[in-house]
Amino acid sequence: MPEAHGRMTVVTERAGVLQIGGALDETSGLVELVGRAVEHELVLDLGGVTFINSLGVRDWIRMQAAATKAGVHLEMRKVSEPVVHQLNMIVATRGTGSVSSFYAPYACDACGREESRLIDAVANAAALQKMEAPPMVCPECSQPMAFNDFPERFFSFLATS
């Protein structure tokens, strides 16, 4: 059962692993989540985050600071595109946590399908370091999909995470 934190939802997948969804804004109270870490580890699954505004960004930065102060390591997984957008715009949001996977935009030249695809940041670390997007296949026509952004821009958030 999801817990409502304003317009944000939290589902406890298991101890220390939280699925975050909805909007991160002035109602989210992200700092409280740091207390749910287990053995100084907190995993945030951000695949369901659809929106984050400037107040959500401030809350996010406070959460990062609180985690650092408490000695908690944050792992961000399935980071949604709206969150990646903020991580790229605002260096302070990256904190000292790590990103294990994230969504990225792909488009199929053959059939025109556009889709957000999940990238494993650990398995593809070498390619991502070179700002190369991992290859993807279109689920509709099985043709290769092209990365649908500038890699240097979109992957820049990985530089300090």
Partner: peptide
């Protein structure tokens, strides 16, 4: 319009209204 366009529109609108 794409999810990305909608996402950008949400962010811009929220900030301007706020």
């Amino acid at each position: 319009q794409s999810a990305r366009v909608a996402s950008m529109a949400m962010l811009v609108t929220d900030e301007l209204l706020s």
